[in-house]
């Protein structure tokens, strides 16, 4: 089952960890969480995909919406722990042009 397994704050970032297939359902959970946090003036997010090894383009498309929301607030979306095929997929889509990408959460938090 796809789900958000944790949401924590580190430095200035909201760190969101997911588990399972990053599909439409999980994408919608993430965008809802981002929208809730934006209302509380939190605009910088790190999505930790260590436990999500597979994605589809519908889930990825929702991340484009997330980027759009955060751009309006001068916020940011960072991605870490991407499986190689997820990184490749996001690169083909051009998503990685609009996100900071990191190998580890530690690197993402320290940016």
């Amino acid at each position: 089952m796809s789900k958000i397994i944790s949401t924590e704050e580190h430095n200035n970032f909201v760190v969101v960890k997911t588990e399972g297939y990053f599909n439409k359902d999980l994408g919608e959970l993430v965008i809802s969480l981002v929208e809730e946090n934006v209302k509380e003036d939190k605009y910088h997010f790190i999505l930790d995909l260590e436990q999500s090894k597979i994605v589809n383009s519908i889930g990825a498309s929702i991340l484009i919406e997330v980027i759009e929301i955060l751009q309006e607030k001068d916020g940011s979306l960072s991605l870490c722990h991407m499986a190689p095929i997820i990184e490749k997929t996001f690169s083909i889509m051009g998503l990685t042009k609009y996100c900071n990408t990191f190998k580890s959460l530690e690197e993402a938090v320290a940016q």
Binding site: S57, S61, I67, T89, I92, M93, G94, L95
Partner: peptide, 25 residues
């Protein structure tokens, strides 16, 4: 062919990547 730059700047539907991804992969 979808383009993220135009999808981000316009009120454009964000989906429509499937065929492009298949061809690339």
């Amino acid at each position: 062919i979808p383009d993220i730059d135009s999808k981000l700047k316009k009120q454009e539907r964000k989906r429509g990547w499937g065929v492009m991804l298949i061809k690339e992969l």
